[in-house]
């Protein structure tokens, strides 16, 4: 299994498309960093427009590496599913398209193993993307903007809130958030792989994955009670932003944040269960379909 995984990772590493994602992430991150370095105060003024009269804050301190990473992840984690689909959607269909699938499947390796190895490789690729994001969006931002307390702007129900997390209480939250994001993105990888089994070229599953993500995201954001109650809880897209839960710090009765706390761990845990269930179900279907599939390409 390990040697199969090595082979799979080697194949992924040799494909030019693999690096598109890394370049895209670096580019987006750089643009954010440049924009905030040049004029981050305007953004802060926008976010604080309704309280600028009442409070004075040191905006240059507020725009620090931790804050930057949060802002970047906020945007980037919506785009990254496309990048994950780019590799996972190609896993089987790419081999079918190239004609290597039939050679691969005449080797003494079971189809279940092939799916598991390819899934594992997609997972590792996803984790690598996230590590790359951590390096560019977090560590390089910290290098450029320095470290300080972190300000979170949050919409809760129909209210807005400003949360402040002290500097020494942030890093573990990022670690947890990146782990959560890895699981959320693995759902996308599992979905893309399932679609990949049905297709004979990689464009189809990539586009289909992205379309499903878009449609589900739109549904997740529709505020209609019947959808809120019956549909949303089952859509994986409702949980893609769950990583933010780690930054929603709990507060005491005086509204003072409690160091090391999370406001609603239960919700994050449930999200994780639902995401993991998605992964197992999608992977199970993928294996079942692939095992029965006649290879005609």
């Amino acid at each position: 299994m390990w040697s199969l995984l090595q082979i799979e990772l080697y194949k992924i590493s040799k494909r030019p498309r693999t690096f598109i994602a890394f370049i895209a992430i670096a580019a987006i991150v750089f643009i954010f960093q440049f924009a905030f370095k040049a004029d981050g105060e305007s953004y802060m003024n926008l976010m604080l427009q309704s309280v600028n009269d009442t409070f004075e804050i040191d905006k240059s301190k507020a725009i620090n590496g931790y804050f930057m990473c949060y802002i970047i992840l906020n945007t980037l984690l919506i785009q990254v599913p496309i990048l994950v689909a780019l590799v996972a959607g190609d896993a089987i269909s790419g081999e079918a398209n190239m004609g290597t699938l039939r050679l691969l499947l005449t080797k003494p390796v079971s189809r279940t193993q092939i799916i598991l190895v390819k899934f594992l490789a997609s997972f590792i690729y996803t984790v690598t993307l996230l590590i790359w994001m951590a390096i560019t969006a977090l560590f390089i931002s910290l290098f450029i903007f320095g470290a300080d307390d972190m300000i979170i702007f949050r919409v809760k129900g129909d209210e807005s809130q400003i949360l402040q997390i002290t500097q020494d209480d942030i890093m573990w939250r990022y670690l947890a958030a990146f782990c959560y994001a890895a699981i959320a993105l693995t759902v996308i990888a599992a979905l893309a792989m399932l679609l990949s089994v049905y297709a004979e070229n990689s464009i189809g599953p990539i586009i289909a994955t992205v379309s499903i993500v878009i449609v589900c995201t739109v549904i997740s954001n529709i505020s209609v009670p019947i959808i809120d109650k019956n549909v949303k809880p089952w859509l994986f897209t409702s949980y893609l932003v769950g990583w933010k839960g780690f930054f929603y710090i709990a507060t005491n009765q005086d509204g003072e944040p409690i160091k090391g706390s999370i406001e609603n761990w239960g919700a994050i845990r449930n999200s994780l269960y639902i995401l993991l269930a998605h992964i197992f179900i999608l992977l199970g279907i993928t294996i079942a379909v692939f095992k029965r599939k006649d290879i005609l390409t």
């Binding site: 082979i7 080697y10 040799k14 030019p16």
Partner: peptide, 18 residues
């Protein structure tokens, strides 16, 4: 059909390993 983006050596060693 083989992995177009890999060398002859890599192609052969991948399938040998498998």
């Amino acid at each position: 059909d083989l992995y177009k983006y890999l060398s002859a050596y890599d192609n052969l060693s991948i399938f040998a390993k498998m």
